[in-house]
């Protein structure tokens, strides 16, 4: 690890200020990706601005049909407190291990946009709104390919607003070593239609499977997606599964998510 300065602001405004001054800074959420990167000397920021001490970034609350999660909320808190959106709570409770869940945050995960992370599938399938220190971004506009998002430099996710669906479920097929999603499919049924988001599978990162959405919007049963498939082209192929295998799993996991979907 190279030397760096560490700032631990307790107010969001202070964090924003630090991230926009002339010192080269990186925001530090739960550090589940950034800390290992630093330890391998693959990044050398002059300064880290920890978001962990900012109370206004933490918490889960439900208002009307919307569940809002503070950007600095750890996965374990979402698992415990997002009961109004059971599929989201279950997803959070199955990320990594207890140590990861008690450090890693929803904002950090979404800002990193790892192509195998779970949260991007939930945000995209829910049509969530990502609130930052300066604007609101629709999930459909937020994810811009592997490790790439609409966030500007220094922009912090302060909250994520999830419209609560009528029924939803997330099915993760785990990569055997990392237990990230080899393929993860989040299905969410809303009054105006069904949204299906797939993580782990595509070289472009999380994506919506529109063909399945159309079929499921017409008929929300597992049978409705029988026979549908995504093309293997563009899928990730690696040690743990070929492109064809991942494409196949997208279909299987979608069916299972529909079959398991509950309100």
């Amino acid at each position: 690890m190279y030397s760096f300065e560490l700032e631990r602001p307790t107010r969001l405004a202070d964090a924003v200020k630090l991230l926009s001054d002339s010192t080269e800074s990186l925001p530090l959420g739960g550090g589940q990706t950034l800390i290992p990167t630093l330890k391998q000397r693959l990044a050398s920021p002059e300064r880290l601005v920890s978001l962990a001490g900012i109370a206004e970034l933490k918490g889960v609350k439900t208002e009307g049909g919307t569940l809002t999660v503070g950007g600095g909320t750890p996965h374990a808190t979402v698992a415990a407190e997002a009961g109004a959106y059971p599929a989201l709570a279950a997803l959070a409770g199955n990320i990594g291990d207890p140590a990861v869940r008690n450090r890693g945050t929803i904002g950090g995960s979404l800002a990193n946009n790892d192509p195998s992370a779970c949260y991007p599938a939930a945000a995209l399938a829910s049509g969530a709104t990502l609130v930052t220190d300066r604007r609101e971004i629709a999930a459909d506009d937020f994810f811009q390919g592997m490790f790439s998002t609409a966030l500007d430099e220094g922009e912090i996710i302060t909250a994520v607003r999830f419209p609560i669906p009528e029924a939803a479920n997330y099915q993760k097929f785990e990569q055997p070593a990392s237990r990230f999603a080899l393929v993860g499919v989040f299905v969410a049924k809303y009054p105006d239609g069904v949204r299906v988001a797939v993580t782990g599978a595509s070289e472009e990162g999380v994506f919506r499977w529109s063909e399945a959405e159309t079929a499921l919007s017409a008929d929300f049963r597992a049978e409705a997606v029988q026979g549908l498939s995504v093309p293997a082209e563009g899928m990730i192929g690696d040690l743990h599964g070929s492109k064809a295998y991942r494409a196949h799993l997208v279909g299987v996991m979608t069916k299972r998510a529909v079959a398991a979907a509950k309100g």
Binding site: P176, A177, S178, F180, L239, H240
Partner: peptide
């Protein structure tokens, strides 16, 4: 697993499944 250039692909627990 090594690739054809002799680089170890399963060089951490992210890819080596214990």
């Amino acid at each position: 697993v090594y690739d054809d250039n002799g680089q170890l692909q399963s060089a951490s627990y992210m890819d080596y499944a214990m």
